[in-house]
Structure formats: structure tokens, C-alpha cells
């Protein structure tokens, strides 16, 4: 008995040692974990043409938000609040940040956006993404309140504020999220939530930030359909909080179609 068991143990130990020693799957050359987003990437993501967004609409393959059982709209600084809970290691958060920036840029302005990538040792490794860490957002319509709990090496990063803590405690759990404290989790004024990636994360694999950004303005690209379609859905949810303002965004064909995907939307 000892011999066959020993052979199995030896093989598994050998696999682990080879992996630890650096063999196996390739990883990209060392990149800074987080750095300022290139101007070209920022421009492409924050200025997706309205015509492209309207062409894409809200395809059926995208996951819509869920209705939250709360009557009072969550506000911060006197405006409806959009709360985001995430972490830089998380590949699903990496995917969701792209449409979030596309959508939020229609209601306000980002500054200080960064680029980073998801964990190198997890599923969908090294998914290129944007990061909200160290950025700011200003809008006359909403307050955007993001938090990234950990960096892409699972090290501690940011602590949640009181509003984020309440959102996590009240709603970041089944059935609104796959697990307790699941990320990404987006709370739209305590009225709707998104708990998980809205489109197929596989679409982003192997692409650089520049490649992702450049495809957002081509409605024939599968990536654009996923990201921009999700951005329309996010925009539609925000429009429910802002009373349909700004009219140019909330009245656009793409957002009107996406509104039909928002449960209980007016």
C-alpha cells in the first residue's frame, strides 16, 4: 500500500514544487500594480459616443440589476448615492469597472483614474481594469461612493465608510449577491443592486487597457456590446434615481431600452 500512496503523494508534491519554483503558466512581465491611467484610455472610456451606446442598447445576455426592498432612496451629500464595493484582486470587479466608468461619465466627471489588473493567481488572471483608488468623481446628479477593500495581491487597501458598511450589511448577501460580502456589489440608492459581473469576463482576457478602451467605440465588437450594454443598464438605474436627468442621457434610445431591463423602473 505504501508504494502506490507514496507515488501519488510524490507526484502531487512535485507539481506543487514546480509551480512554486516558477514553472507552469506564464505570467506577464512585472507591471506596477496601479498607475495613472493613460490619457488616451481615459478619453476613450469616458467619451464613448452616444450613437454607439444607442446602437448597442441593452442586449438580453447581460445581467440586469435586482430590485432592493427599500422605499427610501439612499443619499450622500444631498444627492442619490451609488455605492460600489470591490477589490482590485477580484476579476469580476475588474470587468464591472469598465462599464461603471462609461456610465458614470455620462452623469459627471472622473479625475485621477488609475489602471491596474486583477490577481495574477486567480481565475481570469491579470484582467486589465481601471481602479477608483485615489480618484475623485463629481456630479450635479449623484454621489459615487466606491471602496476597494484589497489590492491585487490580497493586501489590505481601503476601509469602508459608514454608508458602505451599512450597504454591505443590509444588502450584500443572497439573494442580491452570490455570497455574504460578495464583490463586486453596486448599490443604486438602495433601490437596485448589481451583485457580480454583468457580462462575460472572458471577453477581456489577454487584452491591454488600450485595446479594451479602443474597442468600446465599435458597436461591432463583442467587448463593446458587453461593456457598453452594461453601461446603458447602469445609466438606466442611475436615471431612476435622478428623475430622468440629464435628459440627453436618460432620454437616449439606449437608456430607454435599458430601462426595460430594470425591474420596477418607471
Amino acid at each position: 500500500m505504501a508504494v502506490p500512496v507514496g507515488v501519488v503523494v510524490a507526484v502531487v508534491v512535485a507539481l506543487v514544487l514546480v509551480k512554486v519554483a516558477g514553472g507552469g503558466s506564464s505570467t506577464p512581465t512585472a507591471e506596477p500594480d496601479r498607475q495613472p491611467a493613460p490619457a488616451g484610455v481615459v478619453t476613450a472610456v469616458t467619451s464613448v459616443p452616444a450613437s454607439v451606446l444607442d446602437t448597442i442598447g441593452a442586449p438580453s445576455g447581460l445581467t440586469p440589476p435586482q430590485r432592493l426592498p427599500k422605499a427610501t432612496v439612499l443619499t450622500k451629500d444631498g444627492k442619490p448615492a451609488v455605492v460600489y464595493l470591490g477589490a482590485e484582486f477580484c476579476p469580476y470587479c475588474a470587468a464591472e469597472r469598465w462599464p461603471m466608468v462609461v456610465a458614470l461619465s455620462r452623469f459627471g466627471t472622473f479625475s485621477g483614474l488609475k489602471i491596474t489588473h486583477s490577481s495574477s493567481t486567480d481565475v481570469f488572471a491579470n484582467t486589465r481594469t481601471l481602479s477608483f483608488v485615489g480618484s475623485s468623481y463629481s456630479s450635479p446628479y449623484i454621489t459615487f461612493d466606491p471602496v476597494e477593500f484589497e489590492n491585487n495581491r490580497n493586501g489590505p487597501l481601503e476601509q469602508p465608510d459608514a454608508i458602505q458598511t451599512r450597504v454591505e450589511a443590509n444588502f450584500d448577501k443572497p439573494p442580491y449577491s452570490g455570497i455574504d460580502g460578495g464583490i463586486p456589489f453596486i448599490d443604486f440608492g438602495n433601490q437596485w443592486s448589481i451583485g457580480g459581473p454583468s457580462y462575460n469576463v472572458q471577453i477581456l482576457q489577454g487584452l491591454s487597457w488600450e485595446e479594451i478602451a479602443s474597442q468600446l467605440s465599435d458597436p461591432n465588437q463583442v467587448l463593446a456590446v458587453g461593456v457598453d450594454g452594461t453601461a446603458n443598464i447602469i445609466s438606466a438605474a442611475i436615471c431612476q434615481l435622478t428623475g430622468g436627468q440629464p435628459a440627453a442621457v436618460c432620454g437616449s434610445p439606449g437608456v430607454r431600452v435599458a430601462t426595460g431591463r430594470i425591474p420596477g423602473a418607471k
Binding site: 445581467t63 477580484c90 481565475v123 457580480g196 459581473p197 454583468s198
Partner: peptide, 16 residues
């Protein structure tokens, strides 16, 4: 996709 989430507590993997 409702199960496609990571744990905010930093699990070893994203369970996917």
C-alpha cells in the same frame, strides 16, 4: 452569474 462573485474578505480564490 449570481454565484460569480469574489469574497470581500480575500479568500484564496474567487471560487470560480
Amino acid at each position: 452569474p449570481s454565484l460569480l462573485v469574489c469574497s470581500a474578505s480575500g479568500a484564496i480564490d474567487c471560487a470560480k
